[in-house]
Design a protein around this nucleic acid. Structure first.
Length: 132
DNA sequence: TCTATGACCACAG
DNA sequence: CCTGTGGCCATAG
């Protein structure tokens, strides 16, 4: 069984799981991995989002049909990545659907899990991460 | 093939 | 409350 088929199965599962996150709520990479029965692979969830197709690509799963902005890290923080400003775009997308994003003195952006977290049938094991 | 890297996470000190 | 460590595994070069 080729690795590429495995990878495709995984990516599809990730995108479908993310589509279950309701508007105005957020969850973590690790929680998506746990929902799929692969608690050891939160990193691969991030990879799937990184390679998420653009809307023009015509793919069934793209950045319009998958609410990528609702996935943040286990500390409630919007993770930064290579592209400058990408974290800011995520914060803006969240604010647009009513999620309050706070910025600390270091410029890191946080979401309050106790108000906006979505963790069905389990807690994020940290549960209450608040901003100072 | 092998190495390096990374939208992560839990656990030790 | 820090920083470090080990684990994970698809991608890129």
């Amino acid at each position: 069984m080729p690795r590429s088929e495995e990878a495709e199965w995984w990516a599809n599962a990730v995108y479908e799981a993310i589509q279950e996150v309701p508007p105005g709520k957020v969850t973590s990479y690790g929680h998506i991995a746990r929902l799929l029965g692969e608690p050891q692979r939160p990193r691969q969830v991030g990879v799937c989002l990184k390679v998420l197709a653009s809307p023009e690509s015509g793919s069934h799963f793209n950045s319009n049909t998958v609410p990528w902005q609702r996935i943040i890290n286990s500390k409630g923080m919007i993770s930064h990545r290579s592209g400058p400003g990408s974290a800011e775009r995520q914060a803006e997308a969240l604010a647009q659907e009513g999620v309050e994003v706070t910025t600390d003195s270091m410029g890191e952006m946080y979401v309050d899990f106790s108000r906006y977290g979505w963790f069905p049938s389990q807690l994020p094991s940290e549960g209450t991460d608040e901003q100072p």
